[in-house]
Amino acid sequence: MPVSLQVIYPVTEGTKFDHAYYADTHFQIVDEHMGAHIQTIVVTKGLAGGPDTPAPYYAIATMTFADQAAMDAAMKAAGPALEDIPNFTDVKPQMLIGEVVS
């Protein structure tokens, strides 16, 4: 059964997030070290939380995997990607692991 990993970067006062580095460099690192295990990646840049409401998140990355074993293998290889996080943000990312239902 497919599973997903969402990495969520919440906006909090006084934090920074370098979208260019995230898109151009960080995801090259993710692909190099974890890509063989990932089926799809969708990255969403936060624009708004609704009409006249600022975005509550800088970005959300959603990665899907064929099954739990594939995600486990990707996570074992994730060290360089995790170590790269301070290069584009000082936000502590949140994660959601889930079962893909549709």
Score class of each variant (00 low, 15 high):
Val100Gly: 14
Thr25Ser: 06
Ile60Gln: 04
Asp84His: 03
Ile60Ala: 08
Ala59Gln: 00
Gln68Ile: 14
Thr40Pro: 03
Ala73Asp: 05
Gly46His: 08
Val101Thr: 12
Asp72Leu: 09
Pro80His: 13
Gln39Ile: 02
Gly50Met: 07
Ile85Phe: 06
Ile38Cys: 00
Pro56Asp: 12
Thr44Ile: 04
Ile29Met: 06
Met71His: 02
Pro86Asn: 14
Phe88Trp: 07
Tyr22Asp: 01
Tyr22Leu: 04
Ala73Tyr: 02
Ala20Ser: 15
Asp90His: 10
Pro2Gly: 03
Ile60Trp: 04
Glu13Thr: 13
Leu96His: 15
Phe17Lys: 01
Ala74Asp: 05
Val3Glu: 03
Met34Gly: 01
Ser4Ala: 14
Ala81Arg: 00
Pro86Lys: 11
Met71Gly: 00
Glu32Ser: 04
Thr44Val: 09
Ala74Asn: 05
Glu99Gln: 15
Met1Glu: 12
Ala61Val: 05
Ser102Ala: 13
Pro93Arg: 07
Asp90Gln: 09
Ala73Leu: 07
Met63Trp: 03
His33Lys: 07
Asp67Ala: 07
Thr40Met: 09
Val101Cys: 10
Val91Gly: 07
Leu96Ser: 13
Val7Asn: 04
His33Met: 08
Met71Cys: 03
Pro56Gly: 09
Gly46Ser: 10
Pro93His: 11
Ile41Met: 02
Met95Arg: 14
Ile60Asn: 06
Met75Arg: 07
Ala73Asn: 06
Asp24Ile: 05
Pro2Tyr: 04
Val3Arg: 06
Tyr9Ile: 01
Gly50Arg: 03
Leu47Thr: 10
Thr64Arg: 00
Gln6Ser: 15
Met34Trp: 00
Lys76Ser: 15
Asp90Ala: 11
Glu83Gln: 13
Leu5Cys: 05
Lys45Trp: 11
Asp18Cys: 09
Glu32Cys: 01
Ile38Ala: 00
Ile8Ser: 01
Lys92Thr: 15
Ile97Gln: 11
Val100Arg: 09
Glu99Gly: 14
Val91Thr: 05
Ile8Cys: 02
Asp24Tyr: 07
Phe17Gln: 02
Val30Arg: 00
Asp84Met: 02
Ile97Arg: 11
Met95Thr: 15
Glu13His: 14
Pro86Cys: 14
Met63Tyr: 04
Ala23Asp: 02
Tyr58Ser: 05
Ala36Phe: 08
Val91Cys: 06
Ala69Val: 13
Thr40Tyr: 06
Val91Ala: 04
Ala66Gly: 07
Val101Ile: 14
Ala77Ile: 06
Ala78Gly: 12
His19Tyr: 10
Ala66Val: 03
Glu13Trp: 13
Met1Asn: 11
Lys45Tyr: 13
Met75Val: 06
His37Ile: 04
Asp52Asn: 12
Tyr21Gln: 05
Ala69Gly: 07
Asp90Arg: 08
Gln39Cys: 03
Asp84Ile: 00
Asp31Met: 00
Val91Gln: 03
Asp90Gly: 10
Tyr9Ser: 02
Glu99Ile: 15
Ser102Val: 13
Ser4Tyr: 07
His33Arg: 06
Val7Asp: 04
Thr12Pro: 10
Gly46Tyr: 08
Gly35Leu: 02
Ala20Asn: 10
Pro10Leu: 04
Asp31Glu: 08
Tyr9Phe: 11
Ile41Thr: 03
Gln6Gly: 14
Ile97Lys: 09
Met34Arg: 01
Tyr58Gln: 08
Phe65Tyr: 11
Val100Ser: 11
Leu5Ser: 02
Ile41Gln: 01
His26Ile: 07
Pro93Leu: 09
Met63Gly: 01
Gln39Asp: 06
Tyr58Cys: 06
Asp72Phe: 05
Gly98His: 06
Tyr57Thr: 14
Ala23Arg: 00
Asn87His: 10
